[in-house]
Amino acid sequence: MTLYILCFTLFLVGIYGILTQRNMIKIIIGLSFMEFSVFLFLALIGYIEGGAAPILSKNFESGNFVDPLPQAMVLTAIVIALAANSMLLSMAVKLYRKYGTFDIRKISQLKG
């Protein structure tokens, strides 16, 4: 249970970062925090106390296996998040070249 609570705390830290920070890079870091808390949560779903790796071998014994599906999901989700994050960072760099600042309060042409 502690693990789930810690995981959710990480999620909240991420939201706090996105809501309060004014620096674009810090906002992106906050978003990554949220992403990784969800990845941890997915990995925790499949975990079973004392479970073995789910590999079917010759001397197969029935026993506790951890669920492999969430692990596959986490790997896919990490790749997607990598793409999204690199895109965000490149956008932040482009914005920095246009405005000369990372402060989102100074980057506000779109209003209304």
Partner: peptide, 27 residues
């Protein structure tokens, strides 16, 4: 240009949060 990049940045942050919430719900 300036406007496009700003709009896209905003869109990506909010879209990223949405994707995380959806993934969490699916989990």
């Amino acid at each position: 240009e300036r406007e496009e990049l700003e709009a896209s940045f905003k869109y990506q942050i909010l879209g990223g949060i949405a994707s995380i919430l959806i993934l969490f719900g699916i989990g």
